[in-house]
Amino acid sequence: MVISVRDLITLLHGMGFGALFMLAFSGAIGVIYATAASGGIWPASSPHYKLFRFYLLSMSALAWITVLSGTYIVYPWYRAVAPAGTTDLTRYPRLLLLSNPMTAGWHEFGMEWKEHVSWFTPIAMTMVAVVFITYGPNIARHRQMRNAILGFTAAAFLATLVSGVFGALINVHAPTSGGPEIVLMGHK
């Protein structure tokens, strides 16, 4: 049982950082709601609040790691240009998708949208984390500030959903594989 380095890093990008980030969304909504529902009674130094700060900062960091690894590690493999005369396009996912009218849409619509829309997420989640940390429990007393961070959290979720779904489906049709192979398990 072997896995290529590109497969492994793509897996880390999507299922490691990206999926972990998606799973954390319900927690983020819970954190913001819990702060609001508390009516601002928790002091900024309380363990709850420290945990909430750490949670949102971790989400923001995960979002940055996901888009940066996607844009600067996985995407260059995806859009690699094949040397002239190449007939086997399995190592060139973009070209492989475009070579067939039945799969071209995965690039022209799916990847074109995914690669850009994913960048909304770290921008929005950084703002959410910073505003939450800056104002802390006082957010409970202010509906507009709370609405803004909930709204941008929801927008970040939508952007991540689009990126995650298209990323997974594109990788089914044209996986970014190649590079050195890592043996996970030998033959019995």
Partner: peptide
């Protein structure tokens, strides 16, 4: 008065929110 967040003015939060819109 509801816009005032404790002793900290809401301007910093407003700046972060609007800047996120501008960046988007």
């Amino acid at each position: 008065p509801d816009d005032v967040l404790g002793s900290l003015p809401n301007g910093l939060g407003a700046a972060a929110i609007l800047a996120t819109g501008i960046g988007s």
